[in-house]
Computed example of a mutant assay.
Amino acid sequence: MNKTRMLFLCLITVLSVVITASGCSFHKKSAQSEIYTYSDETLEQLLAATYQEGTFIFEGLPWLISKQEVIDKQKLIQSDDDDWLIVEGTFPLNASIKQTVIYNFQDDQLVSGEYRFATSDNNHFAQWGKELGVLLSKWLPKPRTENIEILDQADISAQQGNNLLWQGVDRSSMKVSLSVTGQEDYLLLMHVASPLPEREGLKK
């Protein structure tokens, strides 16, 4: 009787250890996944606001609208500078990535915009760049410069100052630049510009 009871208690103890270890392993993997993996939905939100029907746009807005129209449509706060609006990014990325969105104006017309993503975590930056590269290759045609595979090693490409350039059917464009800042942050900059003929034709 005592022998049977001891065997039963030993079995319960072993099972408890196995279940606890499995739980820790699961939570550890889940935490790593949360830190370094982004769903396609998150990055597709970014691309949907940037590329439509073969042309590049910014924040889903038409080019050459006035600064006040941008403020009204995006519900932004007026700034003292006539040439740009700077706001914090809102894409649901990991908190360690600092996001900045910049609207650039010329003669009170929206002519370009920038998404800036910065982090001091090189591993995080490398993983994010790799996932962005996969999605860009699905959404966009081949870039005019470099190879999209530079995003497979985004941290190394940032140290080398590499960049990619796409041009839309209307000559709008997007340039993705990788660099390391003076504060040793890894920076990915997406600069989206209005069609060249329209920009050259702006009237003063």
Rank of each mutant, 00 (worst) to 15 (best):
M1R: 08
M1L: 10
M6V: 06
T13M: 13
V14L: 13
S16T: 11
T20H: 12
S22R: 13
S22D: 14
F26S: 15
H27R: 14
K29M: 11
Q32C: 11
I35R: 13
I35G: 00
I35C: 05
I35V: 15
Y36E: 04
Y36Q: 02
Y36C: 03
Y38R: 02
S39R: 01
S39Y: 00
E44L: 12
E44S: 10
E44A: 06
Q45M: 05
A49I: 00
T50F: 00
Y51P: 01
E53M: 04
F58H: 01
F58L: 00
G60Y: 12
L61V: 04
P62N: 13
L64E: 05
K67E: 11
I71L: 11
Q74M: 15
K75G: 10
L76V: 06
I77A: 15
S79P: 07
S79Y: 11
D80Q: 13
E88K: 07
G89D: 05
T90W: 06
I102Y: 03
N104P: 04
Q109V: 05
S112A: 10
T119P: 01
D121E: 10
A126K: 09
A126R: 09
K130M: 14
L132C: 09
V134C: 11
V134K: 14
S137R: 05
S137D: 13
E146S: 13
I150W: 00
L151N: 02
L151A: 00
S157N: 01
A158R: 01
Q159S: 06
G161H: 07
N162E: 07
N162V: 02
N163K: 09
L164T: 01
L165Y: 05
D170P: 02
D170N: 08
K175N: 09
S177G: 14
S177F: 08
L178R: 00
V180G: 02
G182H: 14
G182Y: 06
G182Q: 14
G182D: 14
L187E: 14
H191F: 12
P195V: 02
L196T: 12
L196C: 05
